[in-house]
Design a protein around this nucleic acid. Structure first.
Lengths: 134, 134
DNA sequence: GTAAACATTCCAGTGCGCTGGAAGGTCAAG
DNA sequence: CTTGACCTTCCAGCGCACTGGAATGTTTAC
């Protein structure tokens, strides 16, 4: 199948497919006599795997590492399991960071609600963000 | 004060300070006879404001927009309040996304725990990520 | 007088996942 | 035979917040 068909079957652009080849996610397929890429049917499943892995938050580099193992004939189970747990930890960290930022913003929102714009204009830049000694 | 002193007082690098000037967060200060930047004391408070705004999750472009209002003599209260609420919404969206990704990963972790590496090796790439018809 | 610490400018790169344009070659339908 | 859809390569940029190096100039301390 040519790149356009693979694109519409996978929901990706032809540009993205060529990019995936460039970064090693897709094995360079054989070419037709005219020089067109000629993908095997299995490319669709490979792209589905890539998409699912992305939805799980894996980076392209990590996905490539899994695919490379597979292409070398090795079972990637252990590697995949490790990646999953790394990402769970990562997500927990990021959620904690977001929660902290959210607390900061909530404080500012409260302060904003209590601020009279008329009295805003002291020496500081913005008494909502950095509270003055009021 | 010269750039090195401002850097150590603010905890930023001299590179970052020059970068901040380049992107319009710092007003270009006067220069000494030797061509060195000569910052007013108020630059410290300005950088504190920038830092606090960043901790609240504002982008440098947004922070600049607040500072520009201030530099033009206008009270940025209303603008700041709007930014705060935009970011709160943004954070809620991102936390929901992270939670969704986390659910995907939890599913994969469960599947990984139930996967026997010995039987991994079918036609698919990884039965943890995309479950086969087991 | 000389060395070290500090400053200047300019250009360019980082990571991530694409996306865009230009200039051209190939193939099927009419 | 021409049109138009499809394909090719190459180079370049996005957004974000910096960071790095090179080559050079200034100030301070001894």
């Amino acid at each position: 199948m040519r790149i356009g068909e693979l694109a519409s079957r996978s929901g990706l652009s032809t540009r993205t497919l060529r990019f995936y080849e460039e970064v090693g996610l897709l094995v360079p397929p054989p070419r037709t006599s005219g020089g067109y890429r000629d993908y095997p049917g299995s490319a669709v499943a490979r792209l589905a795997f890539i998409g699912e892995s992305q939805r799980a938050g894996l980076t392209l580099a990590e996905i490539r590492s899994v695919l490379t193992l597979r292409d070398d004939g090795q079972a990637p189970c252990a590697h995949v399991t490790a990646l999953i747990h790394e990402h769970l930890d990562d997500i927990d960290r990021r959620m904690a960071e977001l929660a902290a930022t959210r607390r900061v913003l909530r404080t500012l929102a409260t302060r904003a609600a209590a601020t009279d714009p008329a009295e805003c204009g002291g020496d500081d830049i913005c008494s909502i963000v950095i509270a003055g000694e009021t």
